[in-house]
């Protein structure tokens, strides 16, 4: 571990809009990057739905925050990991996602998790 830099992983396991967790998690992600930490985002279970293309929230009168995932790159947040099994269980493929991600198997995701210093889940 470099001096003062920790590996933060944000574990996203919840779908957007039904609850506020996905949105508020993104806010922490952006702040963590501003602290020059090593940031990864993991999407598993229903968290994969956060990255679904084509979100239109006008009808539920709620802010569509999905464009933020595409803006993460501008904050040097480039480590987005999606668990393959979760994606497939939801009938989704990489083409359905609104941003470039690295697809990992469950096993690989577990190994990556072990490498972290701080795990935050919302």
């Amino acid at each position: 571990m470099s001096e003062g830099i920790k590996k933060f992983m944000f574990v996203n396991r919840k779908a957007p809009y039904g609850t506020i967790y996905a949105l508020e998690a993104l806010e922490v992600v952006l702040i963590t990057a501003a602290f020059d930490q090593d940031v990864s985002l993991a999407f598993l279970d229903d968290g994969v739905y956060q990255l679904k293309k084509g979100q239109q929230t006008k009808g539920i009168d709620t802010k569509n925050f999905s464009p933020t995932y595409r803006a993460l790159e501008g904050y040097d947040i480039e480590k987005l990991y999606v668990e393959k099994e979760s994606m497939e269980a939801r009938g989704l493929s990489e083409d359905d996602l609104l941003v470039d991600v690295t697809v990992l198997s469950r096993k690989e995701m577990g190994e990556l998790m072990e490498e972290q210093d701080v795990l935050l889940s919302f």
Partner: peptide, 12 residues
């Protein structure tokens, strides 16, 4: 809830 299953699946 599937939390236990997810943990057992992902956790090493």
């Amino acid at each position: 809830n599937s939390s236990l299953d997810s943990c057992l699946g992902v956790g090493k």
